[in-house]
Design a protein around this nucleic acid. Sequence first.
DNA 1: TTCATTTTTTATCATTTGTTAAATTTTTTC
DNA 2: GAAAAAATTTAACAAATGATAAAAAATGAA
Lengths: 186, 186
Amino acid sequence: MDISTILDNIYKLPEQSRLALQNNVTEIAFPKGHILLKANKVESNIYLIKKGLVRAFVDRDNEVTFWFGKEGETVLSMKSYVEEQPGYESIELLEDCELYELKTENLKKLFEQDVHIANWGRKFAEKELIKTEERLISKQFKNASERYLELMKDHPELLQRVQLGHIASYLGITQVSLSRIRAELK
Amino acid sequence: MDISTILDNIYKLPEQSRLALQNNVTEIAFPKGHILLKANKVESNIYLIKKGLVRAFVDRDNEVTFWFGKEGETVLSMKSYVEEQPGYESIELLEDCELYELKTENLKKLFEQDVHIANWGRKFAEKELIKTEERLISKQFKNASERYLELMKDHPELLQRVQLGHIASYLGITQVSLSRIRAELK
DNA sequence: TTCATTTTTTATCATTTGTTAAATTTTTTC
DNA sequence: GAAAAAATTTAACAAATGATAAAAAATGAA
């Protein structure tokens, strides 16, 4: 996926602003299994996914996956990005990935200088906010089985690309529960 | 709570930009029980809470409260604000409220014209996003009892101001479950 | 391919949360 | 302040999900 397509999908930018952003982007690739961002660390880059799949997870006694990112999506340590504080999540590559890397520091300078880029950043946060809020509501309304069916409907490709343990974690249930649910649906 | 304090708490604005925002704000009051924003409707205003308490809820077969807003917080129909589409939530006043009203249309013009205000809007969305993401993670890590204790710790005043049925809904459990949890904690 | 490792499923039992109904307490209204 | 209404708690049982262990299936390495 092309960098200009990714940027414009978030918010359509005037050519000049989009180029200003693109000029700060470098391409980089990592293999499956690589840890791109680490929890409890102030991260200084964000990434846009050109190709591949990643997951965000929090690791306390057990490990909880709470986000998947694929082509066109933005990978960042939310607390680092917003508050310049150590983040709660780690990002692991679930497939070999090609990424566009962008230094948070440079992005923040652009936010101050260019109203279009500031609005691009605003739209990015707003869209993520809606997605997160909808998931929170879905979690409160629906049982595990309904959430699984919803995920199958909205993101069927994830079922092909992600192992079920991570899917279960994302749905907020154990892998054993997910197996049971899948068996009941047959 | 003063409008300039509320605005600056989200993101410190230069005097001129802050005044541009303030000039678009009008004060308005509604009594407890009033429905400020309605689900399935494109809402054209957002509100900043000067005084009082509100809840956001989704109403399908049962009613789920997923957000409380108090002094200094921003009330909006997220889908209306971001996508100009009918929102999923209604907002009910849990106390008599004094509000600052701001037309979304005017705010969006300011976003295009003033880079500081655009960054104010960006920061607002980013901060809400972190709060929402932390709640989603909390819901996946913690059981009902732990979430109740967390709420008591982080927002003890809510327990005084909100009836337990709404708290239970916010925690994602039934009122009966919450009563049981409270009894066990004694 | 074959063996080892990892992932997924199945089974059993324990725990948590939901449902319904009734009792109790608190709040509101007259 | 008394009666009515609303909110909260308690109780008993049902349903959903978790925990643990073992079996089966899929994947990866030699």
